[in-house]
Amino acid sequence: MVARAPVHRRGHVHQALFYDSDDELLDAVVPFVEEGLKATEPTLVALNDRASDLLREAVGHPDLIFLGGRTRRHDPASTIRHHRELLAAHVADGARHIRVVGETPHPGHGSPWDWWARYEAAINHAYAEFPLSNVCPYDRRITPGAVLEDVMRTHPWLAADDGAHVANAHYEEPRRFLLGRPVSADPLETTSPPRFELLDPTPAAARRAARACADLLPADAVDADDVVMCVNEAVTNALTHGRSPVRVRLWCSADRLVASVADRGAGPPDPFVGLLPAASRGSAGLGLWMAHQMCSHVTFHRTEDAFSIGLVFDARDGGR
């Protein structure tokens, strides 16, 4: 399986690559990367440490750029912001084609999936303006089936066995994918009653409950100010754009805080809400975009007559 950059194609070519062994990964990625390096195209790699080492050893080219540290993918909103800046900088430097091999976090890496599923759909729009061949490798040995299904629905191209890339018949238009996506509840929601429950609260009352809930966790487990801000923004959106009743529930355990803000409306009409910098998208987008950068995970749950936002704060990584 070899991932090739499509020829004579402008814009973002977003391909999924499925592999079952290290050899399969290298067989596909090494030629893709070497082609780019040979053509002096900016060639960037964002993989886990082990896969990065394998690729570094196999390619051994000083111009191959490994993204790590600060540019590692923490959350989809800041990843999109960083990547857009990075891609724009390469284009400004004269790049006519850019190659990226980028791994998206999922439960196989210990990361939540919903917001990364939305990321995979949203970048078809968010990176569309860039001359980018973007290969997203998924290790079938550790990738859950539900994730593989979402990957099939969010990548317009697939790396094919014969060495080419082929159009993916299962690809869905991002708007359709994003607006029709059910999400399962956080385990904390289903295993315990909420510590706080409010109906049609003022934003101030919701903030007080959020702080009180954060204060139930061990000191510094989560950033209480972030919890307050994110709950405020979700409640503001529900009160402003949603339909009554607005229901706020807060759960917590020793190392986790979950907030759910639900209303009877259809949810934000913007399918990319929360993922893209949102100054031009009105205040609804702005607050949710901030929440995506403060939370450990943000989920959107849309049904026919209700919308809810799940905000998750994990203590393990200091609340983000």
């Binding site: 910098p277 100054a279 031009s280 901030m290 950068q293």
Partner: peptide
């Protein structure tokens, strides 16, 4: 204060890189 500064900083980032 830090939480207020954080909100201001994130909003500034969004203004610099509109989607």
């Amino acid at each position: 204060a830090p939480p207020v500064a954080r909100a201001l900083q994130l909003v500034e980032l969004s203004l610099r890189s509109p989607g």
